[in-house]
Amino acid sequence: MTKKNALAYGAIALLFLGLGLYMGVRTKQADPVTTTVAPTAGPQTPVQAMFAQSMNDATGANHSLSRWKGKALVVNFWAPWCAPCVQEMPELDQLAAESTAKNINIIGIGIDSPANIAEFAAKHKISYPLYVAGLSGTELARDFGNKQGGLPYTVLIGADGQVRKTYLGKLKFDELKADLAKL
Rank of each mutant, 00 (worst) to 15 (best):
L95F: 12
A122I: 02
N116Q: 09
K125H: 13
Y131T: 12
K102G: 05
G108T: 05
Q94A: 15
G70R: 02
S66E: 15
I107N: 07
T100Q: 14
I126Y: 04
T100L: 12
S99V: 01
C82Y: 09
V86H: 06
A118S: 15
S113D: 12
I126G: 06
I106G: 01
A83Y: 01
I117G: 08
Y131I: 11
K69D: 00
A79P: 03
L92I: 02
P90T: 11
E98Q: 15
L95R: 10
A121W: 03
A122F: 00
K102W: 07
K69E: 13
A115N: 14
A122N: 09
K123Y: 01
K69M: 04
G70P: 06
N105I: 01
C82L: 05
I106Y: 05
W78F: 11
E88Q: 12
E98W: 11
H124Q: 06
L130T: 09
A96E: 11
L92G: 03
W68T: 01
D112L: 04
I109C: 08
V86C: 01
I106D: 03
Y131W: 13
A101D: 13
A83K: 07
G108Q: 08
K125G: 02
S66G: 15
H124V: 01
G70Y: 10
V86D: 04
E91S: 10
P90H: 11
A96Q: 12
R67H: 11
Q94G: 10
D112V: 05
P114Y: 14
P84L: 05
T100C: 05
I106T: 05
V86I: 09
E119C: 00
K123V: 00
P129I: 11
V132M: 08
G108W: 08
F77Q: 06
A83H: 00
F120E: 07
K125F: 07
N103L: 09
K69N: 06
L92N: 06
A133I: 03
A72C: 00
Q94D: 14
C85D: 01
S127L: 09
F120W: 03
A121D: 10
Q87W: 04
R67N: 12
Q94P: 07
V86M: 01
A72F: 00
E119D: 13
